[in-house]
């Protein structure tokens, strides 16, 4: 009798297990408009990632924490998925990247009226450039230790330094720069402008930590559902929510 009860219970559990949704903790740093506490649905990245994963049948829990904690938490297993990632080799040592779900240009910002000319990273040598602490811009640029880089904490600081002539240049995703100017210091719009040319066109990805059980499956599910959503137009609808923050040039 007891034996029978255990057998039934075991069978029941075995049937229910695949149906039980896994709760994934998705984390991103404060990087408006891609991710941010005050943004609608946590910003573009977190909105897209959670929508796609939910549609794939996962439970999702999102939060915004400082960048250092993002990296630490992803390595210790505190967080499962990191949103808002540019392509980066170092991060890919412990994170598996999904297909991109958004692309943005990374451009240099100069004081209005300056006419610096450069086409390669090497040609940036004469300039002082404000860069975000630990930010990923473009592989060659990030590696270039010979450049006169001034480390700041936020993109806005870089733009302000350019505006007040403390550095020659700063750089970031055009979306990030526009968002910072528009929301934090509109007066800056009269003092800075994008330097001609695009440093790199970056894509936004989701990264799943390697040691998460079923990480491959999650990425596969994500890529599949993302394709479906791109095809059925629901991705565009979702992006439209954040369109107001992506002010065109």
């Amino acid at each position: 009798m007891t034996r029978l009860v255990f057998a039934v219970l075991f069978a029941f559990q075995a049937v229910l297990a695949p149906l039980q949704a896994q709760t994934l903790s998705v984390v991103a740093d404060e990087w408006p408009p891609f991710s941010g506490e005050a943004l609608p649905n946590g910003g573009l990245s977190l909105d897209v990632i959670s929508a796609v994963l939910r549609r794939a049948g996962y439970d999702v829990d999102t939060q915004v924490v400082p960048w250092a904690r993002v990296i630490d938490g992803a390595q210790t297993g505190e967080f499962d998925i990191v949103g808002s990632l540019f392509e980066d080799a170092e991060l890919q040592t412990f994170l598996s990247y999904s297909d991109p779900f958004f692309s943005t240009d990374v451009r240099l910002v100069q004081r209005k009226g300056d006419s610096h000319s450069f086409t390669t990273v090497d040609e940036l040598r004469p300039f002082s450039i404000a860069v975000g602490d630990g930010f990923v811009y473009e592989a060659d640029f990030d590696r270039a230790d010979y450049l006169n880089k001034v480390v700041v904490t936020t993109t806005l600081q870089g733009v302000q330094m350019v505006a007040h002539g403390r550095v020659d240049l700063t750089l970031d995703s055009v979306d990030v720069i526009r968002h910072a100017i528009t929301h934090d210091d509109p007066a800056l719009a009269d003092r800075v402008e994008f330097a001609p040319g695009v440093l790199v066109s970056q894509t936004l990805h989701m990264g799943v930590r390697h040691d998460l059980e079923g990480s491959t499956q999650i990425i596969a599910d994500f890529n599949r559902v993302l394709g479906e959503m791109r095809d059925d137009g629901s991705l565009d609808a979702l992006l439209a929510v954040h369109a107001s923050r992506l002010i065109p040039e």
Binding site: A130, T153, L156, Q160, M161
Partner: peptide
């Protein structure tokens, strides 16, 4: 102040 790090 120089880097506009107003939090700091």
């Amino acid at each position: 102040l120089w880097t506009f790090d107003f939090d700091q």
